[in-house]
Structure formats: C-alpha cells, structure tokens
Design a protein around this nucleic acid. Structure first.
Lengths: 224, 224
DNA sequence: TTTATAGTTAAGGTCAACCTAATCTTAAAA
DNA sequence: TTTTAAGATTAGGTTGACCTTAACTATAAA
C-alpha cells in the first residue's frame, strides 16, 4: 500500500503525462507546490517501487503498473466527486477537495460498486480532468424495467435512470440501489403499484416510479 | 484539524467512556494496541488542545468539545458504514474497516447530507458499537414516515416498506397506495393513533403502522 | 563552447507516531 | 501503617515520510 501522498504524486504524474509523454521535475514541483528537490527524491522512491520510469534529467512517466494504479485512483476520485455533487448536492470545489481526501481511503471494491450504483456517469467527462475516464466495467445482460416484470420474477438492479434527477435520488434513498436483489411479490393491477421485496424489506411502489428501475433478470447470483 | 490518528484516539476514548466516566491508560492502550507510554503521551497532547480532561494517574475523559468532535466522528463512521453495507452491499467487516479510514476524510457537510440521503437509518443501532447513535442532524428530509408528520401536514405517499410483507399488504389493502395524497387530520396522543384523510376517506391508523408509510411532504402537487 | 536553466544530491530539519526502560503513584494487601 | 504490585508517566530514542536549502551537475540553445 502506497501512502496518501505518494498516491498524490502518482495521480499528478498521470495528469501531467496524459498529453505529453513525460512530466518534468520542475513542472511537477510547481503543480504540487513543493520544491523540485522533493520531487526528485520522491520520484526515486517511486521508481524503486516500479511505479514510474525515471531517467535522470529526462523526466518521469508512469510504468504499466503505475499507470494502472493512478488510473484506478483517478476513477475513485471521479466516482466520489460525482457522488458528492450529484447525490449529496455538494458544490463542485468542495466536492473536488473532498474527493482528493477520500480517494485514498476508499477501497477498489467500493469504488466499483459505487460506480455501478450510479449507473454509467463515470464514463463521461470529468470536470476536474482534461481527459474522460472509463467506467470500471461492463457486462452483457438482459435488462427490463421493473414495472414490466411479472409477478414472482426477480433479478438484480442494474441501474436507475430518469430525466429527473430528483426521481433517481429518491429511488436511491429508498434503497433501490444497483446491485441489490429484487423480486416482485405482488402486482395489484396492471398499471397499479408493485409490491416488491429486497432483502428483508417489502415495499409498495408506484407503477411509474418502478419504470425507472432497470433489473437484470439474468443476474440473480452474479457477483460484480 | 486533528490528524487521523488523533481522531482515532478520540473516538476510542468515546467508546470506552460511554458507560464509565473515564478511560484508563492501559485500557486504552490495550484497546488500541499501542503501549501505555504512547497513550500517556498522546493524551497530553489532546489535553493541551482542550479535547480531553486529563488528570495524571486518574484516567481520561472527553471535554465538551472533544465529545462533540468524537460524536461527530462516530456518526460519520456509522453513516459511512451504513452506506457501504446497505447501498454497496459491502460485507460488514470490510465496511467497518473502510469506514474507519473514510471517517477521517469525509466532511461534516457531506456526512449530514449522506444521512439525509439515506433517510433515517442512522438513528438505529449500529453493529460495530455497543451504543446506538443519533442521526447527524434532524435536517429537512422531504420523505417522512407518516407517524412523524404533525397535525394538518400533508403530502403524497412515496412508498411503503416493512420487514413484514403482511404489513405492506395490509396497508395497501387499506388504501395506502403510493402516489395518493394524504393528510394528517388529528393526532390523538404522542404515540397514539393518527386520523388521516385520503381523498374522501378518513381513517384511524395505529402509530406503529403509520411508521411504515413514507410521505413526500414536498410533493403535494408533484407528479412522479 | 559557453552558460542559463533545469535537475540532482547532500545534509539536515520537522513532525507525528511509535517504542523500551526507568521511574514514579496509587491503592490495596499484609 | 507500611509495603508492594499494578498501573501510569517520563526520558530518551527510533522511524518513516515528508520537506527544505545550498551546492553541484547535466543539457541544450545561443
């Protein structure tokens, strides 16, 4: 495990080398607001650990391993930032700063699941980076809106979508979170409420609301 | 700002002083898996900062300020842990460990909002603590359980949920269907039945039963 | 080929933790 | 009331992960 600060170096090297091949010491020093000497020193450590390619006087770049690490970190950053702004209504600047702290604390697993929870937003461009980042993973599935499921059918929530952010937020806050197992208990009438079950909870849900929840019916025992 | 480790001391002092008035040095040392000497040392620092009451050889306790701080921290822990288990399906042990890291990174603001997002679950008992914890703040959640609504308040039924399927079915069969407008006519006594109105029907409803019905109070004319 | 600029090393500092060993307090047993 | 063991504290020291300044060195453009 690399420490928080080392991780910052990695992520910043990534940011600076994204377009160009290498980051220069001074450039990085300015960017991170430390002395060039500190950068040189740190880089030697990271090189020894195989995370960066380092040739004296020639700048740094990430190794394959470092790249993977840094990208993962950046994804975490984005996922968190996204979550903070979209789900918690935190303003952008604050969200960014907070994501900078939290990206070092969240596990890979949680980041991935968080990504799933939010549907696809992590694919898209990120405000604080020049480059877009990719979603953590994708699968082939049979996905149906919850309101189209028949009685006693079940599956796993794939994603939730609506033009109205509020609706998505509301559903999330009700516990409809991608990844959870869900089954239709009872259908009261065709266009009427659905009684659904998730874990121990049973819940009655409006037909229209249910249409925003997409269920993967082939995913009953699949793990992320 | 106190460092992560200092925060750990605070939260652990809180845990140990919850029942008893003070925590003993050795007790804390054992609990945190460090030497008693380290504890003494750290405590002096915290005392200097006004976060703990410290009288040599007499044990530590939190000051008013330290208590506030530690409680806030523990709340953060709970909110995060809850989020990880309930929303991301992370197993408990992992969630706890992760919350331990993240509690130092999340801001007060985000914790509060996260709490709101999740509705009320943070009120309830927490798996990893002996003591239940309170919600981060009362806050303005639009979705409120019916039993918490004041007299003459109204809204639209958002959803109905219970661990017991029968309860949900019964409520549905009584006409409590998501989407319907509802208002509190009369409150007979604090924990007593509510008389509610839906359309033309008036109905008396047990306090406990009412707690399963969630009302969107901001949604009086809103459509899903 | 010179020389400014950029990069590196050396030497040393700080800070927050931690530890062991020695010493001191307290409280309870003798 | 004295003794003493358990518990707490201090002293002194270590470590790791940073950082800095100052002096030195390489590079590449004039």
């Amino acid at each position: 495990m690399t420490t928080g600060n080392r991780e910052d170096y990695l992520i910043n090297i990534l940011r600076l080398t994204e377009g160009e091949g290498v980051a220069k010491t001074t450039e990085l020093a300015t960017y991170m607001n430390v002395s060039p000497a500190s950068v040189s020193e740190m880089i030697k450590v990271l090189a020894k650990e195989g995370l960066v390619n380092y040739e004296k006087y020639k700048g740094v770049s990430l190794t394959e391993e470092g790249l993977t690490y840094a990208r993962q970190l950046r994804k975490k950053h984005h996922v968190l930032e996204r979550f903070l702004t979209d789900y918690l209504n935190i303003d952008h600047k604050t969200a960014h700063e907070e994501a900078c702290r939290m990206e070092h604390a969240i596990s890979d697993e949680s980041a991935i699941k968080m990504c799933h929870m939010m549907g696809t937003p992590v694919d898209s461009d990120c405000q604080s980076c020049k480059k877009p980042c990719k979603a953590v993973s994708e699968g082939v599935t049979r996905i149906t809106p919850l309101n189209k499921l028949a009685q006693s059918e079940s599956g796993r929530i794939s994603h939730i979508t609506s033009d109205d952010t509020e609706v998505v937020k509301r559903l999330i806050s009700m516990g409809f979170v991608p990844g959870r197992e869900i089954s239709i208990e009872t259908i009261l009438s065709d266009g009427g409420p659905r009684i659904v079950r998730m874990g121990n909870a049973t819940m009655a849900l409006d037909y229209h609301l249910a249409s925003h929840i997409f269920v993967d019916t082939a995913a009953e025992s699949e793990q992320f």
